[in-house]
Amino acid sequence: MTETIKTLLQPIQDRLNAATPGPWDFEPFDGSFGIYSLEMQDDGSFPAVIGYADASEAGTQDDAAFIAAAPTDQARLLAAVQAVERMAQYLDKLADGDRHYADLFRKAVTDALTEAR
């Protein structure tokens, strides 16, 4: 059975919902070390510290930016795919039962989600 867009997106949405709310950030220390963390809470604590990084290692700053942006990027990508699905549902209604064009949208999204694994 072919997976639907909803079944492909649900585990991503579940992980996003379970993650500690951000904003996530990368805090460099003296230009040599950094810490991936979440924004400080009202009580002065950090709810998560992901790890330390030596900023002299290749890619560290890029990795930090990627990790810090992941929750926001995931939320935006999920919203974009859900908007495509809503458009496909709208096309279903416009087409008077001819689901051909809406199904093309769904297939393209499902194929992309499946191939990205």
Rank of each mutant, 00 (worst) to 15 (best):
M1T: 13
T2W: 04
E3S: 14
T4P: 10
T7A: 11
L8N: 01
L8W: 08
L8R: 10
L9W: 06
I12W: 06
Q13H: 04
D14S: 12
N17G: 01
A18L: 02
A19L: 08
P21V: 04
P23W: 01
P23L: 05
W24C: 00
D25A: 01
P28V: 03
D30W: 10
F33P: 00
F33N: 06
I35E: 00
I35V: 13
Q41W: 02
D42V: 00
G44W: 00
F46R: 12
V49W: 04
G51W: 06
Y52V: 12
A58H: 02
Q61Y: 09
A65K: 14
A65M: 07
A68H: 11
A69Q: 12
A70G: 06
A70Q: 06
L77Q: 08
L78E: 04
Q82R: 15
A83F: 12
R86F: 05
A88G: 13
Y90N: 12
D92H: 06
L94N: 07
D96L: 11
D98N: 15
D98Q: 07
R99T: 15
H100G: 12
A102L: 02
A102V: 08
A102K: 04
L104F: 06
L104I: 12
F105G: 12
F105Q: 11
R106P: 03
R106E: 09
R106M: 10
A108T: 14
A112K: 08
T114C: 03
